[in-house]
Amino acid sequence: MTRHLSMSINGEPHEFDAADHRTLIEVLRDDLALTGTKDACRQGVCGSCTVLVDGVAVRSCLMLAARCQGKSVTTVEGLAAGDRLSALQQAFVEAGAVQCGYCTSGMLIAATALLESNPSPTEVEVRAALVGNLCRCTGYAPIVRAVLAASRAGAGHPVAAVGS
């Protein structure tokens, strides 16, 4: 059946109808044009579609949209403050943590969740937090460096404008 759902997405209230079987990634990408959340395996293995639901990193391909009723969803589009990148986003840019970029959204969300719960992680803790996010380009080292740099800079604070 189809339900009427309401949830906060990137801080904005959203109301829409969605069939029970529809997943969060489908609603985000297909209905709301929030295509920053990436679709790569639809099996919950690669982590590309990771989003925050009430602050917890989840695979949006395994999460039914209906289960987010009344909750708060954050996607990669919600990390920057307007055009000002978060410290983590800026660190990804500066550390060369982005190549093809297809895993980047999921990496950023997983790392955001890590830094929320553990603002000063060790390298091993960063690697463990990202183990569910696959990257085929970088070999992970610059991503790990970026997360560590952001943790030193204070991840939550916007530091630079997009494109700077």
């Binding site: 920053g36 589009e77 990390l79 920057a80 990148l85 986003q89 990804f92 982005v98 959204s105 997009v162």
Partner: peptide, 11 residues
């Protein structure tokens, strides 16, 4: 820095 990095980190 690569030119498309900001576009990629913002989705």
């Amino acid at each position: 820095r690569r030119g498309d990095a900001a576009e990629k980190v913002t989705g």
